[in-house]
Design a protein around this nucleic acid. Structure first.
Lengths: 198, 198
DNA sequence: CAAGAAAAATGACCGTGGTCAATTATGGAG
DNA sequence: CTCCATAATTGACCACGGTCATTTTTCTTG
């Protein structure tokens, strides 16, 4: 019943990730090829799939790690008090999410956990993302009539919406930040627009 | 300069679409294979790609047509006056959008126009969708402090969010409708929650 | 109808993700 | 140290989307 994991397993997996990271650094996630990864790692193709369910599982892990680093940065900053401060804080993460269509597609597909027992790296970061956002909305200067977690999920929805629109040639003249702002104002400060005195 | 389109071109394309439609009816969009389409249509593989840029272009067209039929239904109904009526009205379209992961992925990828001159079928339906929604919000019982088009885009964002969450095993116990409602209440009726008397 | 130009169709071929039966390496028991 | 169960690796092979030089069909013009 005990499945022993041999040391070489970890070594091989590390080599695969290292090779993939190097390829992405040199070119992009879009250009990443499994055959190139195994060539550089010096293993056979089948070995790759013994370590990762499929190519997307590798991307999930790599992209999840980068998002997590962004969340570290975001958490380390002061709690934003205005819409503009929120936009400032989220901009680096959003820039990464929209840096490549491939990256955005993988994030969209894996931002929800596939199942309870095997929650993937990206899904985990988005759970964390919601918590970070929700904390901003507890006792903050933003609307207090809603569950902070629901507000956070709404912000996430708007981030995805703004990024998705950014990928259409029709709309990508405006920066993502400017497209996100009106949503957040109506979502987080409804009193301001409903009652100008507020 | 004049590129003549021969009658057989239309006939071949019709056969391809007919074959694809039959396959989807028998199985699903997920199971659709280009090789099976051309086999049934009685043409060579290369012919397919002379008619459609790639497999996704066919899916774009087929799915766009179905969405358009849903919008016909939605337009034919009375303008919804409450959140629940909105949910009732949107449910069939949302059910289709979430019927297969493949369908949802294609919709996400093509809901924005790739470029001004070649706006795809799905992108066109989502422009129409925004207009239909925006019309509900002009002089309606919903918040009047915001641009109707922006409100409509927000609803679209929440629809995508609710559907995306529905694809995670973690969350798919609740129907999509129930997941969408809280967002819409906070988005379209902020006065109700901010001021209970309202 | 003949001839030639343009449009349409063809199918062998390629790239790349993914599979799996066979082989090799590892570590623990005696 | 030897044996062997099992973990790990291998690479030939498959599935399927997509390409393109070549061939066939159609339309036009005289």
């Amino acid at each position: 019943m005990t499945t022993t994991i041999q040391p070489r397993t970890l070594k091989t997996r590390a080599r695969l990730i290292e090779a993939a990271t190097a390829i992405v650094a040199e070119s992009s996630f879009t250009e990443l090829r499994v055959e190139e990864v195994v060539r550089r790692a010096g293993v056979a193709k089948g070995t790759f799939f013994a370590h990762f369910k499929d190519k997307d599982a590798l991307l999930d892990r790599m992209i999840g790690e980068i998002i997590d680093q962004h969340l570290d940065q975001i958490s380390a900053q002061d709690t934003p008090k205005t819409i503009d401060e929120i936009l400032d804080t989220l901009t680096p993460l959003m820039w990464f999410m929209g840096s490549e269509r491939t990256v955005f597609d993988v994030i969209l597909r894996y931002s929800g956990a596939a199942s309870v027992e095997e929650i993937g790296p990206i899904a985990a970061t988005f759970e964390r993302f919601i918590h970070v956002l929700a904390d901003w909305f507890v006792d903050g200067p933003f609307r207090q009539d809603a569950d902070p977690a629901t507000l956070a999920e709404g912000v996430q929805a708007f981030v995805f919406q703004a990024l998705a629109l950014n990928f259409c040639a029709l709309n990508n003249t405006r920066p993502v930040r400017d497209r996100l702002r009106p949503y957040l104002e109506l979502w987080l400060h409804p009193a301001k627009t409903l009652d100008p005195q507020g």
